[in-house]
Design a protein around this nucleic acid. Structure first.
Lengths: 129, 129, 129, 129
DNA sequence: GTGGTCTAGACCACG
DNA sequence: GTGGTCTAGACCACC
């Protein structure tokens, strides 16, 4: 699986990592029962501090997405795929709701909001790699 | 004009104030050339510290949305309505793009994204007060 | 004598008035023993608050430049011309020193400073009205 | 790099800090890509409150002179040297113009202004440390 | 009354 | 350790 982060985003790096692992498990590109990259390995690949990766993994373990296997590393937990699909849905719904709530509160007409929304969905979907 | 903030949002209070003034000028509920509420007045209404309001106003002055009238207060600058309409459009477009980009990168099918999007737009628009 | 102020300058309006009166007396366009415009009159002409003009006059009275003549207004004090010429010199010297000190501290080479200085003196002198 | 401020100047401390950083980058004593002193460190050195330094740094970040590196500190941005050299020139030109405009408006003869100017430039340059 | 600056110190997120 | 935000309250200049 390909990890990519944006160091200058306003979203903390560890949250970006959490989201990417969650989405990876939800989509199946990180298989249940499979090992994920070690903290050091991923930190080196992403050029971030190992503490940052460790924090993300710790959080994912707390959520039940990862389990640590002594001496081997961390693997994707049983049932994590269902869990992650639910979380994916809820994360995205929540973010959409926040931005749409702000858009509506700005007094921009709903038609304009819908127009912007479709425009950006097309643009973003077209750039998918 | 009605100001409302969410103290527990992850968005800083002073940024919420900036957005509300910007949107207010864009929609015309804050008229060009008119005085806006004084720092102390708005702080009391929002139950936040005056410094927090002052910071927002200073930022808006720097952007050219407000001008300070010594001894009288701050007023909405000339041309600020055009400026704010542009900014409103760009702020919302940018936020929509970010959340949609994340949604697409999560491998959730585009149809599901569109469904979520419309669902939330309806819900949020229905709650408009 | 023509009074002109810049309401948006960083220099307070009352100080601008003080400087203009001082310079006017120094140059002779406000004659010793002559009456100066009343607070109300000048405030109206400059479109500023009467308190602001009053404050400037008060300060000039304290300095000995103006004296109030009961029932008639304020007039330029005896010897004020000499006093104002000294003050003019000192005010200007002080401001020049401050800006040059800053220029030197900026590590811009002295030759460049001298060049800027002459360039601006020419420009400003050419615009004299 | 040596920082020094005058607490009793009429120029706000945070603006003095902004000017010193700008001049430091312009002159090369603050290198592009390098970290600048931390907020707490500089505050201690200058014996001012950390908030005052933070405000200056934030303004410099907004101008594009500094970039914040999360968890590490603030560093001098790419291209900041060119930017700061332009700003230095414009700041000094603007201040010179203002004081010379005032001098000319005072009706002091141009020769006297030029004399004062050279006198003060020599004096200030001689005191350079 | 207005905004502007500064000190003081708390709490947080991030690395 | 770093910077970012917020509260609190002081003092000032200006109108």
């Amino acid at each position: 699986m390909l990890f990519r982060i944006e160091p200058d985003s306003s979203i903390p790096i560890y949250e970006q990592i959490i989201a990417q692992v969650t989405f990876g498990v939800a989509s199946g590109s990180l298989a249940v029962g499979g090992l994920i990259p070690s903290v050091r390995d991923l930190a080196e690949r992403l050029m971030v501090h190992p503490n940052t990766v460790a924090r993300a993994y710790q959080e994912l373990e707390r959520e039940g997405v990862l389990v640590s296997r002594r001496g081997r590393g961390m693997e994707v937990a049983d049932q994590a795929d269902n869990l992650c699909r639910k979380q994916r849905q809820e994360i995205l719904r929540r973010r959409l709701r926040d931005v749409l709530r702000e858009a509506v509160s700005s007094s921009l007409p709903v038609e304009d909001i819908r127009h912007l929304m479709n425009e950006e969905l097309h643009r973003v979907n077209g750039q998918k790699k």
